[in-house]
């Protein structure tokens, strides 16, 4: 009889402790990022691996740095890269990347001698068919250059430079100086 009452009391105590903890967190700020209304802090995405993109050229930023050496295509475990050398010097004429086969391991990015490839941070990529996942990266580079012709600041502040370029007022002034 006494043990039964004691058990009830212990159970009630457990319940109250649980309620206190849950109650405290009920009023704590939320961690969930409610996507369409909010987006992830770009700083957190600095190392995020999205689909590949071609980096801009050193001298002529509208051109790719790719020298069609095929190192990435050979090193890729999923065979998702197809590079065809064009007629104009070493520049590629086709650079097709199948994102549906890519496992984002980074072998291509690490092996590239010209650092022509990098991971984009496109977190919110949505497609409606598989064919759309086969991307023509040369066309993608052209589009990006057309949208933002000025070269982002080199190397370390690259991410910051890109962010500044997206911001309308302050970014424009900064890019103007470059």
């Amino acid at each position: 009889m006494i043990t039964a009452i004691w058990d009830q009391l212990k159970g009630l105590y457990s319940l109250i402790v649980g309620m206190i903890v849950t109650g405290r967190y009920f009023f704590a700020p939320q961690k969930t990022v409610h996507y369409p209304r909010k987006v992830v802090d770009p700083e957190d995405l600095a190392a995020y691996r999205g689909p590949l993109e071609l980096t801009r050229g050193k001298d002529d930023e509208s051109r790719t740095r790719c020298i069609s050496c095929q190192m990435c295509a050979k090193g890729c475990p999923g065979n998702c890269i197809k590079v065809v050398k064009g007629t104009e010097g070493k520049l590629p004429s086709t650079w097709v990347y199948d994102f549906s086969l890519c496992c984002l391991c980074g072998a291509c990015v690490e092996v590239c001698p010209a650092s022509a490839i990098d991971f984009s941070h496109r977190l919110y990529l949505v497609v409606t068919s598989r064919e759309e996942l086969v991307m023509d990266l040369l066309a993608d580079l052209k589009e990006r250059v057309a949208a933002n012709p000025l070269k982002p600041a080199p190397d370390v502040p690259a991410a910051a430079g890109q962010k500044a370029a997206d911001a309308p007022s302050a970014g424009a002034a900064k890019n103007g100086e470059v």
Binding site: A46, L104, C105
Partner: peptide, 26 residues
């Protein structure tokens, strides 16, 4: 979620991490 953010910082992904390389880390 915090741990994913931390590990994503070096590995680039949140779940199927491919971080180690022969002779070091990525």
């Amino acid at each position: 979620e915090d741990l994913c953010d931390i590990l994503q910082r070096v590995t680039g992904s949140r779940l199927t991490m491919n971080y180690f390389r022969f002779g070091g880390v990525g």
